[in-house]
Amino acid sequence: MELYDVEEFWKFDIRVGLVKKAEKLKRTRKLIKLEVDFGSEERTIITGIADQYSPEDLEGKKFVFVLNLKPKKLSGVESRGMLIVAETEDGTVYLLPVSEEVPVGTRVW
C-alpha cells in the first residue's frame, strides 16, 4: 500500500449531497445520471453502479461525493464529481448513505 502525506488528502473537496433525481443512461449497462444538491449548487454526476443498483435506490438519499475532480464526459453527459462507495475485491458495491440529520453540503474529512 502506498502512503501519502495528509496534505494530499486535504486537496479533495468531499461533501454530502442529496440525490434529487436519478435515471439510467440509455444504451449503457452501468451508468446512472444523478442530479445532486450540495446546498449552494446542483451538479450532474455520473456513476457506474447500474449493474448493482437502480436509480430508485439512490433518489432522495444523501451520499458522500468528491467535487473537485476534472469534469469527464460519459456517454455524452458531463460528470462533475464522483459518488463514494465501498467495493469488495469481488466487485460487490455497497452504498454509503449519510444520516438524515447531516446537512447537505457538509464537508467530509
Rank of each mutant, 00 (worst) to 15 (best):
R15F: 03
I32G: 11
L67W: 05
E100L: 09
S99L: 14
R27K: 15
V102D: 05
V36T: 00
V104M: 02
L67V: 10
D13F: 00
E78I: 14
T47N: 00
V6Y: 10
R15P: 14
R27C: 00
L96I: 15
K73Q: 14
D37A: 02
F38L: 05
W10M: 06
Q52K: 02
R80E: 14
K20D: 10
P55C: 04
L96W: 14
E100D: 15
V36E: 02
R27M: 02
G39V: 08
R15A: 03
L34W: 09
V85T: 15
I84A: 12
D90P: 13
Y53N: 02
I46G: 08
R15K: 13
K20F: 00
D5H: 14
T88A: 12
W109Q: 10
F65V: 11
L83N: 11
N68V: 04
E59G: 03
L67K: 06
I84V: 15
I84E: 01
P71F: 06
L34D: 11
K61T: 04
V85S: 01
K11G: 06
G48K: 02
P71D: 09
R107Y: 01
R27A: 07
P55N: 11
E59N: 07
E100R: 14
K11M: 04
L31R: 00
V98I: 15
V16G: 09
K72F: 04
V77N: 09
E101P: 15
V64D: 01
D13H: 02
L34G: 10
R43G: 03
G60H: 11
E23M: 01
L18F: 05
E2T: 15
V98K: 12
K72A: 11
D51R: 03
E87I: 12
L25N: 08
S99A: 14
F38Q: 03
T106N: 07
E78P: 10
V64I: 15
V85D: 10
E35R: 08
F9A: 04
Y94L: 13
G17I: 11
F9K: 07
T106E: 12
V64Q: 12
S75D: 10
D90L: 08
D51Q: 10
E41T: 08
S40P: 00
P103D: 11
R107Q: 07
T28A: 03
F12C: 01
Y53C: 00
L25D: 03
P55Q: 04
A50V: 05
G105K: 01
D90Q: 13
E23A: 05
E2F: 10
E59L: 05
E87D: 02
A22Y: 05
L25V: 15
I84G: 07
L74Q: 02
E101K: 15
Y4E: 14
V108G: 04
G48M: 03
L18H: 06
E89H: 08
G17M: 09
E41H: 06
V102P: 11
P71K: 14
E101M: 11
P103V: 10
P55V: 07
L67P: 11
V108H: 08
S40A: 05
